[in-house]
Design a protein around this nucleic acid. Sequence first.
DNA 1: ATACTTATTGCAACTTGGTTGCATTTTTGA
DNA 2: TCAAAAATGCAACCAAGTTGCAATAAGTAT
Lengths: 151, 151
Amino acid sequence: MDEKHEDALLTLQHAGIAKTPQRLGVLNIFLAAKTPLSLSTIKKRLAAKVRFDKVTLYRILSLFKNLGIIREVTSRNGVNYFEIATKDNPVHPHFNCLNCGMLTCMEPLTFSQSRQLISPKEDYHVDHIEISITGLCAGCRDATKLQKRKN
Amino acid sequence: MDEKHEDALLTLQHAGIAKTPQRLGVLNIFLAAKTPLSLSTIKKRLAAKVRFDKVTLYRILSLFKNLGIIREVTSRNGVNYFEIATKDNPVHPHFNCLNCGMLTCMEPLTFSQSRQLISPKEDYHVDHIEISITGLCAGCRDATKLQKRKN
DNA sequence: ATACTTATTGCAACTTGGTTGCATTTTTGA
DNA sequence: TCAAAAATGCAACCAAGTTGCAATAAGTAT
Ligand SMILES: [Mn+2]
Ligand SMILES: [Mn+2]
Ligand SMILES: [Zn+2]
Ligand SMILES: [Zn+2]
């Protein structure tokens, strides 16, 4: 039996929701992913596994998000990304390449780092802090250098 | 002559683009705003001033953004917000109330604060760091307390 | 295993946000 | 004031996401 498939089954079982092929498919995609996934990416990968309607995918993502199985990662271009939200994958900053659009996960902040971010005078109840860093990834930066050399 | 109107005129002049009523209208709305504005808010406020088409508004916002007159502020719900990008209004974190959706501007980070956020090993070229904090604003927190007391 | 109940999916229709091409109007600058 | 250039408005279009409901699949008790 597939290792990932087992994890996916357990997750749905623990959440107390039905184990449908579509949900297992989505969950396995997240479990295998190393970066946050856009909706279109999920759609493509899921299509290779199981028959599904776009409405179903929206509902599954919304359900998983509400159950805390996945979390949403906001990005510049308004496209929504998602990633798995397990205990060993706490909230962390993301790097967003302006050129290729790729999102990569960065190391989570330490407690003292995150405390520095909040001005103590602000009397807000903080739920969470999202940090997103934009720039050029290593690949795109090198490509740009080559480009410049050519010109 | 209106003070803000004057600022708006100068901004367009400096950018070297035509001074149309629609652009002046949008600019004055931004100059008067204390928080980032959503598209729908801008639309409403502009409609009270001048006749315009939605296409025009999209084009103006896109133009202003490219010229660096305004900047985009990403938010949780995928709705795009914009704020004026003058020298005395540098990039800064935002607080986003989960209950009422309100976005408020926070103090900009100091250089040492922002440097702490980047793990030195990451070989990315950083363009800018966006910090967005979610939680409950003072008003909504109090309302929640009252709610709880009632129950 | 079967039958019943409940949850989930697929489909179609619709809403909303945003884009494109082009004719009309406005602004600019001579 | 007038011609050239720029910006706007309009209509048509596209894509993303939502809703209601009937068909189907999963859970559950017998
Ligand atoms: Mn991540
Ligand atoms: Mn701000
Ligand atoms: Zn890149
Ligand atoms: Zn609030």
